[in-house]
Simulated scan of single mutants.
Amino acid sequence: MVKRFEGKVVIVTGSSQGIGRATALLFAREGAKVTITGRDLNSLEESKKAILEVTHSEDSVNVVAADVTTSEGTDKIVNSTIEKFGKLDILVNNAGAAFNDENGKVGVEVGIGAYEKTFDINVKCVIDLIQKCRSHLIASKGEVVNVSSIAGGAHANPNFAYYCMSKSALDSMTRCFAIDLIEHGVRVNSVSPGIVATHFLNALGIPDEGVKKCYEYYKQHRDIIPSGGPGKPEEIAQVIGFLADRSMSSYIVGQSIIADGGTSLIMGMNCHDLSEVCK
């Protein structure tokens, strides 16, 4: 039986853990050859090990330790992929992050340095990679899937304003680039996850015990996540796989699929029983 991504070549950024690792593993399991990339070589080796357990072939995976926020890093990712695999069919822009202010400020007081770092990884590097992959994707009539966030939606989160702004920019980029590239047969779409159990909170300086308490709190409060808890990386990977599979999603162009357990459907007023308030 032919696997759905048999013969395809995929780049997944930020694939040393979390959603990126789950996505790279999904593509490998479905027959693709995958470039995994991140800054932590040890974590990348763990991702590679997981892939080899599925494919049993060193030829199925390309490991690139690189910083996607630098031109040298994106050159290394793209060039090594073409050198090893000869082409590119699917680009998954998953690398992303939020940053705390170094002085502990929040909201409008957060320093411009945090803004620059946030936009470098959530926006600029995506532009850089799409530009550098453009000719290869046109040649293969390929796919781009960006990983955004419900943080880019209409609601506000003042403690992470720059992160929200960057994801809004990414959503706009997805729409604009989709119109540009569909003329060449390349589709661009995105997924907007809600709260997912990854190392995202750890990267913000929250220790494991604090993250565990946070997730338990979410499970107990359906007014935060109606489905009852954080998503799993594999659940987001499945959406990415759907968007990258032209046989399943060929007529979807420039769209973002929200996968958040219902979080973005909740407004503050829904958390209060107005029948009790009005008594």
Rank of each mutant, 00 (worst) to 15 (best):
T74S: 15
I90F: 06
K33M: 02
I112V: 00
E83Q: 06
N62K: 12
A65Y: 04
V61Q: 14
G73A: 11
G73M: 11
N79S: 13
A95I: 04
E102L: 11
V108M: 12
T35E: 06
V92M: 08
L88N: 04
N94S: 01
T118W: 04
N94G: 03
V106R: 09
K124G: 02
A114H: 01
G111L: 02
G107I: 04
G86M: 01
T81R: 14
G113W: 08
E45N: 10
H56W: 08
K33P: 00
T35G: 00
N42Q: 06
K76D: 13
I77H: 05
T70R: 02
E58G: 07
N62W: 14
K124I: 02
K76S: 15
L41P: 05
F85K: 01
D75H: 14
E116I: 12
L91R: 09
I121H: 05
E45A: 00
F119T: 00
V54H: 11
N42E: 15
D101C: 12
T69I: 05
I77C: 10
I121T: 06
F85P: 01
S60H: 10
G38M: 03
E58R: 10
A65L: 08
L41I: 09
I90G: 01
I77S: 01
I90V: 15
A98K: 08
G113K: 15
A66F: 08
G113T: 11
E83K: 07
A95G: 04
S71E: 15
V68I: 15
E83H: 10
N122A: 03
V110M: 13
E102T: 11
F99L: 10
N79Y: 10
V126E: 01
E58N: 13
A50M: 09
V64T: 12
K105S: 14
E116H: 11
G96N: 08
S47L: 12
I36R: 07
V64K: 13
K76F: 12
V34M: 11
K105E: 15
A50H: 08
G38C: 04
S80P: 11
T55D: 04
L91Q: 11
A50L: 15
N93D: 05
N94P: 02
K33I: 00
G111M: 09
S71K: 15
A50E: 11
G73R: 07
E116W: 00
E46K: 14
R39P: 03
V54T: 07
D120W: 03
V108L: 14
V34Y: 04
T70P: 08
K124P: 01
S57Q: 13
I82A: 09
I77E: 08
A50W: 01
A66K: 07
E30V: 06
D120H: 02
A65K: 14
N62D: 13
K124V: 02
K48T: 03
I82P: 09
G111C: 09
T74D: 13
I121A: 07
A114L: 01
F119K: 04
A66P: 08
K48V: 10
D120M: 13
